[in-house]
Amino acid sequence: PPTSTSPHSSPSSPSAGLPPFFMKGSIIQLADGELKRVEDLRTEDFVQSAEVSGELKIDSSTVERIECSRTPNAVIIQFSVGENKAQVCVEVLVEYPFFVFGQGWSSCCPDRTTQLLALSCAKLSVGDVCISLTLKSLK
């Protein structure tokens, strides 16, 4: 069975239980120290930051399935993660944004994401390849 996990949450979320850093205009620091707004991030920013960090590894996580959740305004997304195609399920609010390789921010309900966070999003669909992270274990 797929592993269940949940992405970040924060008690100081501005709206709908989402972390504050997804709000348009939030300042993000890349691993090399460069500052960018969240809406200006590109795929290479994540890839290069992971390379610099040394502790984190970027994985490709393909959306396999999107199902309704019992929780209001939430969905369960099943990902196939990394080379081993590990099956991982996450339960998130429909407006939660994921970063899709070569495309940018995407959510299950882009209109709601834009309404709540002012962050422009594409529609997250089955087959999309999202950026995820793996923590490299210490040797």
């Binding site: 300042i27 993000i28 920013d45 960090s53 996580s61 993660v81 590990a86 995820s132 923590l135």
Partner: peptide, 25 residues
């Protein structure tokens, strides 16, 4: 006196979910 509020800066990895178990190289 009102002190200027500093703008929060978030680390890049905050934006990316950890979806995979810890791996070794």
């Amino acid at each position: 006196n009102v002190e200027p509020r500093s703008v929060p800066v978030f680390p890049w990895h905050s934006l990316v979910p950890f979806l995979a178990p810890t791996q070794s190289d």
